[in-house]
């Protein structure tokens, strides 16, 4: 019965092919350093899920942002857990993505035919860092406010167009409700959409080319 249903679905969806391509790939050599990409992907999904849950209560307005987070921490069942996972997961994700990049660099896995996988990976690291930067403002506490003041000021030190960049980031010359709102939009819509798209291409290329052989003494 179940075999029949599975066969029917497999014929139309190609489940076996997907399984073989994604989970039954040959690995050149068992090595834990090769799992960092999967760890990054896991953290992305974890941040996505906990982020969606936080958006149930969080309000991106100067009047309510801080209070709504206080409410998540003290008023909602397990709110401390969801926010805690999102908070620590964010730091961990930046760390894991960065170590993943170091691994690819050290094992020279960025060479032919994986140059584009590498470039997209660099893009993924940058977007991940921007996720961290925009998410940092959302609690709207003193640390968040001044960190964003300093961060946008640094971006504003670019020659000639610095002032324009600063105003674009802040939505005006000063940190305001506009800043909080656009950081929120970037954090939950723009950057995650970019991440998801880039991850899709990244994964496709990995499945297409397979894992790279580690260099040995002859190389």
């Amino acid at each position: 019965m179940w075999k029949k249903i599975y066969a029917w679905l497999d014929e139309r969806l190609g489940l076996n092919d997907i399984y073989k391509a994604t989970l039954d790939r040959p690995e050149p050599r068992g090595n834990w350093w090769n799992t960092l990409g999967s760890a990054s992907l896991f953290l992305f999904v974890l941040q996505g899920i906990t982020g969606i849950f936080l958006s149930v209560y969080y309000t991106p307005s100067p009047d309510h942002a801080y209070d709504s987070i206080q409410y998540i921490m003290t008023g909602v069942s397990f709110g401390w857990l969801i926010r805690g996972i999102h908070h620590w997961g964010a730091s961990l994700m930046v760390l894991v993505v960065f170590i993943h990049m170091l691994r690819v660099f050290v094992t020279a896995s960025y060479k032919y035919p994986r140059e584009l996988t590498w470039l997209i990976g660099v893009g993924l690291l940058l977007v991940t860092v921007f996720m961290g930067f925009t998410g940092y403002l959302l609690p709207w506490n003193q640390k968040a406010y001044w960190a964003t003041t300093v961060g946008t000021q640094i971006a504003g030190s670019v020659p000639f167009i610095g002032d324009f960049i600063l105003k674009t980031l802040r939505g005006g010359p000063a940190l305001s409700a506009l800043t909080l709102q656009r950081f929120f939009a970037a954090h939950i819509w723009i950057l995650p959409a970019m991440l998801a798209g880039l991850i899709g291409v990244h994964l496709f290329l990995i499945i297409k080319h397979g894992e790279s052989q580690f260099p040995n003494k002859e190389d």
Binding site: V56, V76, S77, F78, G79, L81, I82
Partner: peptide, 12 residues
Amino acid sequence: LPAIGYLISPAL
């Protein structure tokens, strides 16, 4: 289970 508790918390 905590996730469900988180969502329905205000109703309780």
